[in-house]
């Protein structure tokens, strides 16, 4: 991993702190643990959403991050989140090029997953299946990417 990418990872990980709206009940911290099965290398690229419209209809995530895979696992931490419902779309960037690999027909070639390990059915899992609660200082979820 290059220094440049390390910096990007650090910046992306910090992004939610600045982006998080003011929280009435005090900010929450979310820890996401990824387990990968295809290759023990590369990185996890993830997008965190805080509403159904953005998640299901191509809107903006509240945060994005890239975290390195080490020994088949990766951990992302997003502090400063407003308590509420969130959902994650993630993929395993096996070759570490920072992009989802695509076939000439635009279909993904790198493994992907959604929060709650919600299943894709001909497209990304919908918010209704992948949203989960983030409340308190130590919210956690785990996602397996296979």
């Amino acid at each position: 991993m290059t220094l440049n990418r390390l910096l990007t990872v650090a910046l992306l990980a910090l992004a939610p702190l600045a982006a998080a709206p003011a929280a009435a009940e005090g900010p929450a911290t979310l820890t996401v643990t990824f387990t990968v099965t295809d290759a023990p290398t590369g990185q996890i690229m993830l997008s965190l959403y805080d509403n159904e419209a953005a998640h299901d209809r191509g809107g903006k995530p509240v945060a994005q991050a890239a975290v390195p895979v080490q020994q088949g696992q990766a951990v992302a931490t997003s502090p400063g989140l407003a308590p509420g419902r969130y959902a994650i779309k993630a993929f395993h960037d096996i070759d570490g090029d920072g992009k989802m690999g695509m076939t000439p027909f635009g279909m993904p070639t790198e493994p992907f997953a959604f929060s709650n390990n919600a299943q894709a059915v001909g497209g990304p899992a919908p918010w209704s299946a992948s949203n989960f609660a983030v409340d308190g200082p130590a919210a956690a979820t785990s996602i397996t990417i296979r």
């Binding site: 076939t103 027909f105 279909m107 070639t109």
Partner: peptide, 11 residues
């Protein structure tokens, strides 16, 4: 069979 890595899952 992926005939090349970027052709994984292609028709």
């Amino acid at each position: 069979v992926a005939f090349r890595p970027d052709l994984k899952g292609m028709p």
